[in-house]
Computed example of a mutant assay.
Amino acid sequence: MKHITYVSQAQRPMSQDDLAGLLEHSRARNLQDDITGCLVYRYNDDYDRGNFLQVLEGPEAAIDDVWRRISSDNRHHTIVIIDEGSIEERMFSNWSMGFRNLDAEDLKHAEGFSDLGSDAFWAQINEKNLSNGLELLRSFYDG
């Protein structure tokens, strides 16, 4: 199995509807392709821009395929891979796509929403396979 963690900048600030649509599409596709992971969106008022941080894991061919789609997606740019490599077990085995919008409290009740600062979130993570990308995810949330 393979994992990849990346950050990128949103082309424009994402509305709650934009994020909900992205999440719905991603979950359906990831379920079909046996991909799990977590997506974080953070809007920064000071710079009037949003950023994504995403961890994906699954079969190597599926990750390579989704990466081609992500890399050419015009909803974001300045894509930087933080970590990638092989894993023996999934960190997010129960999530087709966990999601966190750090600014939209209304999405709190969306299926799959998790508070990255909660004990419940980290209890779901397979700490045995904690990657550099997941450590970055933790610091991204805490920062």
Results as ranks from 00 to 15, higher is better:
I63S: 06
E60I: 12
D64L: 15
A110V: 13
C38R: 02
N101Y: 06
K108Q: 11
K128F: 10
E127D: 15
G50H: 02
A28D: 05
G85I: 01
E111P: 02
I4C: 05
N94K: 15
I82E: 08
Q16K: 08
W67P: 04
D119E: 15
N74S: 13
E60P: 09
G133Y: 02
D46F: 13
H77T: 14
D34C: 09
D64I: 08
R138L: 10
A120Y: 06
I70S: 04
E127K: 10
S26Q: 04
R27L: 01
C38H: 07
R68W: 02
A123N: 09
S93T: 04
E111R: 03
R90Q: 11
P59R: 04
G112W: 05
Q124V: 05
L134Y: 04
I63M: 08
T5P: 01
K128L: 12
T5E: 03
F121S: 01
V80Q: 07
F140Q: 06
D142I: 05
G98F: 02
R68S: 14
G85D: 06
E127I: 12
N101W: 04
A20S: 11
D18C: 12
M14F: 15
E105P: 08
N44K: 11
E105I: 00
R42K: 15
A120Q: 11
L31E: 11
T5A: 14
P59H: 06
T5C: 12
R75T: 07
L102N: 06
M1F: 03
D73E: 11
G37D: 01
R27Q: 12
W95K: 02
A10Q: 02
S8M: 07
L56R: 03
G98M: 11
L23K: 00
N51R: 10
R69I: 06
H3C: 01
L56Y: 03
V55F: 07
A62D: 10
L130A: 10
R27E: 08
M97W: 01
L136H: 13
R69W: 07
H3D: 00
I81A: 09
N30Y: 04
M97S: 05
D64M: 12
D48Q: 13
